[in-house]
Nucleic acid binder design. Structure first.
Lengths: 163, 163
DNA sequence: AAAGATTGAATCTTCAATCTTT
DNA sequence: AAAGATTGAAGATTCAATCTTT
């Protein structure tokens, strides 16, 4: 089953937490300072951009962003108020609400990306050994989506959002 | 200078974000369900436990937890209200406020650790190749503290807490 | 003036209850 | 009843302004 928690594992965990807090904080700071939109907003809008018809059901957005259901409602509220997306109720199933990317939303993505890309490069990738990047991705990839052998509750969405 | 942002870097970044959100979420969930205290609270109390006299100035706690100054004030408010620590103004410099770990605080740490340790093991370490753990730590360690600063004592003010 | 800390207002997120549609 | 979404209330975090001490 689970191997014992070694000192090296604990150190890796602590480093993981600090690395995340540090990099995210620095990038958010730069985005705010240089007129970009926040990371979560960006993530939502990009998800819409790549979706067919530039639209997604809120339910799917929730899975993508790892927020709770009410969380995504509020987030979409904000983005709609800013004009970056709009709600639509098209469709057979009238329970479903779709978020549709607007032109302003697309513009916000385009405007934010250069700042974001530079931030990822400077505050994350720059510090990694190029040859270790695939290794890191593979290792953390298994943390992100464990393959089956979880004892206990099988999560339907696999994202851990409780509700 | 900074190297160009490659596709592999971007994939690593995305995986990094999802891995963090997933692992933290699962562990917090278990802590809540099994009567432990939240991660941030734990982090603060452990910092106090290891400090000389089981006390630390709020200023130092802030650096440790990567919160803003007002953030640490509110956090200490909560922990004090729960009886897990108490404030003291001892010292020459009467601007400084110290947080002191109480016996209840120590008990909370002891009670939480088994759940936390199991969570780190199950939701993080378990998915890593043991021989890659040191590599991961080294790589992320440079992300956590760029400019060559030593990990373990984030005395560096450049951690991104804006004020 | 500068450093440490606190407070009020605003923002963001979650929880529990509710509404609508299937 | 179940699924998708929303809302009010509560909790957590930040910003800007303020207070005290150096």
């Amino acid at each position: 089953m689970d191997r014992e928690l070694r000192e090296a594992d604990l150190e890796a965990w602590r480093t993981f937490l600090v690395a995340h807090a540090t990099a995210v904080r620095r990038i958010e700071e730069e985005l705010a300072r240089e007129g970009g939109i926040p990371l979560v907003d960006y993530d939502v809008l990009v998800a819409l951009e790549h979706a067919p018809g530039r639209r997604l059901q809120l339910r799917d957005l929730q899975r993508r962003v790892l927020l709770t259901r009410s969380g995504i409602t509020r987030l979409v509220d904000r983005l709609e108020a800013q004009g970056l997306l709009r709600r639509e109720r098209l469709g057979e199933d009238r329970r479903a609400v779709h978020a549709v990317l607007t032109d302003e939303g697309l513009a916000a993505i385009r405007r934010t990306w250069p700042v974001y890309a530079r931030g990822i490069s400077e505050h994350f990738a720059h510090h990694l050994s190029p040859e270790q990047v695939p290794v890191l991705t593979a290792e953390l990839g298994r943390v992100a989506s464990p393959s089956g052998t979880e004892a206990g509750t099988p999560r339907e969405a696999g994202c851990g959002a409780q509700e």
